[in-house]
């Protein structure tokens, strides 16, 4: 049994400290799953919170088969899809918040967020999504191709090219700082 499964079992039994482990091991899966759908950081943050509350509400129904990460991502995905549809219905939504860049739009950003935002400026929206899915969410190229309706070869090429762009951007930033 891995660390995540152990923490889930402990939390089910009421070990509150285990929640920290669950959160730390899954927060980026949840957050970026939501962000890719709603493309709005503050909304993704709300979904992040609601996902864990839904997880708590439904934990008794979770069957321990080492699939917790997939389970919590499904909760996040459903909530994000609902939020996205609500966002589309809401005519007062600011169009700039559903724009091309995944990052940005949130003031008072932490250092890592700012760093990512700056790096990701070198990528277009599809490249950003491919990098998040592959590098952060660790989805397979095949899954990404299916989700984005792109040939698998295109996804592989775009991912490779995007990493090169990001590496160049990171090297440029390091050069600026020194």
């Amino acid at each position: 049994m891995n660390r995540l499964d152990q923490a889930v079992r402990a939390f089910k039994k009421g070990d509150e400290a285990a929640f920290d482990t669950i959160y730390e091991l899954t927060r980026s899966d949840v957050y970026y799953t939501a962000l890719l759908i709603v493309k709005d950081e503050s909304l993704a943050e709300d979904i992040l919170q609601e996902t864990y509350l839904k997880m708590v509400d439904n934990l008794s129904t979770y069957q321990e088969r080492g699939r917790f990460r997939a389970w919590i991502r499904t909760i996040a995905k459903r909530l994000a899809i609902n939020a996205y549809h609500q966002q589309q219905r809401d005519l007062s939504v600011d169009a700039s918040q559903t724009g091309e860049n995944l990052f940005g739009g949130v003031e008072d950003q932490a250092e890592d967020r700012r760093y990512l935002e700056e790096l990701f400026q070198s990528l277009d929206a599809t490249e950003q999504e491919i990098v998040i899915r592959r590098a952060v969410l660790q989805e397979k190229h095949r899954t990404i191709a299916k989700e984005l309706d792109l040939p698998i070869g295109t996804v592989t090429y775009k991912y490779k090219r995007s990493l090169e762009k990001l590496r160049e951007a990171a090297a440029g930033k390091e050069g600026e700082e020194t």
Binding site: R27, S28, Y115, L116
Partner: peptide, 14 residues
């Protein structure tokens, strides 16, 4: 970086 850039909402959840 992506992991650390994820907002910490634990207090709100708790």
């Amino acid at each position: 970086h992506a992991d650390r850039a994820t907002p910490d909402v634990r207090e709100a959840i708790r």
